[in-house]
């Protein structure tokens, strides 16, 4: 089986697709988690009973969507 070394062709498609998909997910979840955490901290400081956490999560979602559009849209 003396074959010449095989040269796999660069498939920029597949790896790049996986990568972009995971970046998008990390922004969407990261947005909710980061602002959710900030909201929760303020919440437990002010004893606001969860309202600020909810606002934080929604803000984070908006920010995450904005970042995904900004990074992937162009």
């Amino acid at each position: 089986m003396n074959q010449p070394p095989q040269r796999p062709r660069g498939d920029d498609g597949a790896g790049d697709g996986v990568n972009r998909g995971l970046v998008a997910i990390s922004y969407l979840i990261g947005g909710m988690a980061s602002w959710g955490l900030i909201g929760w901290l303020i919440d437990s400081w002010l004893h606001a009973g969860g309202v600020i956490t909810a606002i934080g999560i929604v803000l984070g979602m908006a920010g995450g969507v904005y970042l995904v559009i900004r990074r992937m849209g162009s």
Binding site: I29, G31, A33, G60, A62, G63, Y66
Partner: peptide
Amino acid sequence: SAPWYILPLLIPIEFFSTFIV
């Protein structure tokens, strides 16, 4: 690269997704 008034919203997300997630 975003307008300055939206940056405070985006920077924690970028930090979280780059250095923690």
